[in-house]
């Protein structure tokens, strides 16, 4: 092959990739929005369920355990179908809301376990010290236990956040026009599957990599006192 032809081929490849990128770019904000809203919802719900798992009330405790086991035992894709096609029809949910509920509920179960473990990791001497100073159980949680748990759970929670960004692509199946859906649209118009999914993959990778960089930066910045070497 003459050099000229090779150069031509390379530049045409880049042109295709560029076209795809331009086509996909408008769908990226939806992926980000979907992830942010669902994960905030998941955090809120996961916190409540995590606390419920530690409740002294047997009923609350076992209900939260059932919730966690049930949610974790069903594939997210099935939950999305169930919420959009099942509940969605009854409650009149749009695609975005259905996606938010499905991802939010699913991730709340994982987060609940992380949050529960984070609270349980705090030594019982901390409770005894706080209570013996006259603090109420609520104040003990609020000022002594949770601030310490918080620092323990940041890394695993960040991992879940990154995972939820990736899993947001599943919502494309119900037709929400996020990144993966846009990829499918491009592919069905131009039939360049290799290039399309390469670009989609790279965009996800760019987002997840920058997030994990951000997390390790934050972790270093808010380095935990008291979890280092005792001297």
């Amino acid at each position: 092959m003459p050099l000229q032809e090779i150069l031509y081929w390379i530049s045409s490849q880049f042109l295709i990739l560029k076209n795809i990128l331009f086509f996909l770019a408008p769908a990226i904000p939806m992926t980000i929005k979907l992830t942010l809203v669902s994960f905030t919802f998941a955090l809120f719900l996961g916190f409540l369920v995590g606390i419920a798992r530690l409740s002294k009330n047997k009923l609350i405790k076992s209900l939260s355990k059932i919730y966690i086991d049930m949610i974790r035992g069903i594939p997210l894709l099935v939950q999305i179908f169930f919420i959009y096609f099942g509940l969605g029809k009854v409650l009149n949910l749009d695609r975005f809301l259905a996606g938010v509920i499905a991802i939010g509920v699913c991730y709340s179960a994982y987060l609940a376990e992380i949050i529960r473990a984070g609270i349980q990791a705090i030594h019982r001497g901390q409770y005894q010290a706080a209570l013996s100073l006259g603090m109420t159980p609520y104040q003990t949680m609020r000022y002594v236990i949770l601030p310490q748990s918080f620092r323990i759970i940041i890394p695993p929670v960040a991992n879940e956040f990154i995972a939820s960004l990736k899993d947001s692509s599943l919502v494309s199946i119900i037709g929400l026009r996020e990144l993966t859906r846009a990829g499918r649209e491009y592919y069905s118009q131009y039939f360049v599957d290799f290039h399309t999914w390469l670009v989609v993959g790279i965009i996800y990778l760019a987002m997840t990599l920058s997030l994990s960089r951000l997390v390790s930066f934050l972790e270093k910045k808010y380095k935990v006192h008291g979890y280092g070497i005792q001297h």
Binding site: H123, G125, Q126, A129, A130, S132, L133, V144, Q148, G226
Partner: peptide
Amino acid sequence: GMVFQDFNLFPHLSVLGNLCLAQKVV
């Protein structure tokens, strides 16, 4: 007041923070 064998200071607070917390909230 109670003092424990393994101190049980609050590791996320400074010395001053350890002393002030209960004074403020209790």
